[in-house]
């Protein structure tokens, strides 16, 4: 199946010389949820803005649904819904009118039932007659999402959708993303909340300094780069790691009550069996053991730090 979004050598250099996106080849599969992670200024918004028509590419090509975004922009854009990073809404417009306006802009006829459905899902139905400037920040963001969904897009771009929003909205948003995914909508979201990528994405891309450093299936990524830690809690505290265990990469907690053992899940053997045998040979009695996998956050910080170094 061809990718629903493809870029080939896509770049952006702004008028002031800022190289916001280095040549990018990216394929996004239909129906997937792709999270683009990256610090501020990484180029995430620039990439989305080019795909949506807000910024002109400096070079390269991009296609959405097989349509070139420049030569066949009408077909390409008709498939796209965009929730921008900054809240931008006409203050005196009523919620209902705002959503209808967007649907019209995207060339679609009136469909009150669909708009009602969208507003209900976003808990906006009761507010449909309110003016936008009477709404809270979280509600305004919901209106932006409702506008983006008003014309049944096949590809939805969410640019930092949960930056600074409350827990309710974040939960609703994640539910909504799950619903849309069930309907086969492709979702590209940017975020710098790792937990968000971890919770909802199928694939994760990491961008820094306008460069895609990594693009990988989330599970594979976490397994590949994920280091596991085995934490061993001791019945009786010890002063130091016993000499017989010096061959292991062990870390003793300050209170002497637990040991941490780091190992690579991808390694030949984890060394856990031997370690446990050696622990009892040294006469250490164990109270409990548990393992922990490093999160995307740690992976991400490592990557970005590694690049900056």
């Amino acid at each position: 199946m061809p990718a629903i979004v493809e870029t080939r050598g896509l770049t952006k250099v702004y008028g002031d010389g800022t190289e916001a996106l280095k040549p990018l080849d990216l394929d996004i599969e239909e129906g997937e949820i792709l999270a683009l992670l990256g610090p501020n200024g990484a180029g995430k918004t620039t990439l989305i803005s080019m795909l949506c028509g807000l910024v002109s590419p400096s070079s390269g090509q991009a296609r959405v649904g097989g349509h070139d975004i420049i030569t066949r922009y009408r077909d390409a854009r008709a498939l796209i819904g965009l929730v921008p990073q900054e809240i931008a809404l006409e203050p005196f417009q009523k919620v209902w009118d705002a959503v209808r306006f967007t649907r019209g802009l995207f060339g679609q006829g009136r469909d009150d039932a669909h708009l009602e459905d969208v507003l209900r899902k976003l808990s906006l139905w009761d507010k449909r007659r309110s003016k936008v400037n009477e709404l809270s920040g979280g509600m305004k963001r919901r209106v932006l999402i409702a506008k983006a969904l008003s014309h049944n897009p096949r590809v939805l771009f969410l640019d930092e959708p949960t930056a600074g929003v409350d827990v309710d909205l974040r939960r609703d948003m994640w539910n909504m993303v799950a619903d849309l995914r069930r309907d086969g909508v492709t979702i590209i979201l940017t975020t710098h909340y790792i937990e968000e990528a971890e919770a909802i994405a199928d694939r994760v891309g990491v961008i820094n300094h306008g460069e895609l450093l990594l693009l990988e299936d989330k599970q594979a990524l976490m397994t590949r780069l994920g280091r596991k830690t085995l934490r061993i809690e001791l019945r009786r505290p010890v002063e130091a790691v016993p000499g017989g265990l010096s061959g292991y990469d062990l870390e003793l907690a300050e209170d002497g009550r637990s040991l941490s053992y780091h190992y690579d899940t991808q390694g030949e053997g984890t060394g856990i069996t031997a370690l446990l045998q050696d622990l009892s040979r040294e006469g250490l009695a164990l109270r409990d053991i548990h393992t922990r996998q490093s999160s995307l956050e740690e992976i991400f910080v490592d990557l970005v730090k590694g690049e900056d170094a």
Binding site: L54, R74, D75, A76, A78, I80, A88, T102, F106
Partner: peptide
């Protein structure tokens, strides 16, 4: 001025 021009630019209009 208020930023809603993003909608015009992203819509399938000429």
């Amino acid at each position: 001025f208020i930023g809603t021009v993003y909608e015009l630019l992203s819509a399938p209009v000429n």
